[in-house]
Computed example of a mutant assay.
Amino acid sequence: MSSAPLLFACSRCFTRHPFEELSAGQQLCKECRGTFPVVKCTYCRSEFQQTSKGSTSAICKKCEQNVKAYGKPTACEYCNIIAAFIGNKCQRCTNSEIKYGPPVNCEQCKQKCAFDRHDDDKKVDGKLLCWLCTLSFKRALAKTKQGDAERRATLKRTQGHKKKDGKLRSHSKRPNRPEIKLPIPDGQPPVKMARNNSVPGVVGSDLDPNSSDHVVAMTQLREQIASLKKQIVQKDAQLLGKDKQITELKAKHFTTESEWRAKMKTNQKEHDDKVDSLNKRVAGLLKEVAGLSKSAKKTNKNITITNSDANNSSGTDSPSVP
Score class of each variant (00 low, 15 high):
Ala4Pro: 09
Leu7Tyr: 07
Ala9Lys: 08
Cys10Trp: 07
Cys10Thr: 07
His17Gln: 05
His17Trp: 15
Glu20Arg: 10
Glu20Ser: 10
Gly25Cys: 00
Gly25Trp: 02
Cys29Gln: 04
Glu31Ser: 06
Arg33Thr: 01
Thr35Gln: 14
Phe36Lys: 05
Cys41Ile: 06
Tyr43Leu: 03
Tyr43Val: 09
Cys44Phe: 00
Ser52His: 10
Lys53Asn: 03
Ala58Arg: 08
Glu64Cys: 06
Tyr70Lys: 04
Cys79Leu: 04
Ile81Asn: 01
Lys89Tyr: 12
Lys89Pro: 06
Gln91Asp: 14
Thr94Phe: 02
Val104His: 07
Cys109Asp: 05
Lys110Arg: 14
Lys110Asp: 13
Asp119Gln: 09
Asp120Arg: 13
Lys123Ala: 02
Gly126Phe: 04
Leu129Thr: 00
Trp131Lys: 11
Leu132Ala: 08
Ala140Gln: 10
Ala142Ile: 11
Lys143Phe: 08
Thr144Gln: 13
Ala153Pro: 06
Ala153Asn: 08
Thr158Arg: 07
Gln159Trp: 08
Gly160Val: 10
Lys163Met: 11
Lys167Asn: 13
Arg169Ile: 06
Ser172Ala: 15
Lys173Glu: 12
Pro175Ala: 04
Asn176Arg: 15
Ile180Gly: 04
Ile180Val: 06
Pro185Val: 13
Asp186His: 01
Gly187Ser: 02
Ser205Asp: 05
Pro209Met: 00
Pro209Trp: 06
Pro209Cys: 02
Asn210Glu: 06
His214Thr: 08
Val215Pro: 00
Arg222Phe: 09
Glu223Gln: 15
Ile225Tyr: 05
Leu228Ser: 11
Lys229Cys: 06
Lys230Leu: 02
Val233Glu: 15
Val233Phe: 01
Ala237Ile: 11
Gly241Met: 10
Lys242Phe: 05
Lys244Trp: 11
Lys252Cys: 02
His253Ala: 14
Glu259Gly: 08
Glu259Gln: 07
Trp260Arg: 15
Arg261Trp: 05
Thr266Cys: 06
Gln268Phe: 06
Lys274Ala: 02
Asn279Leu: 05
Asn279Cys: 04
Glu288Ala: 03
Glu288Asp: 03
Ala290Pro: 00
Leu292His: 00
Leu292Thr: 02
Ser293Met: 07
Ala296Asp: 03
Thr306Arg: 11
Thr316Asn: 12
Ser318Gly: 11
Ser318Lys: 13
Ser320Pro: 07
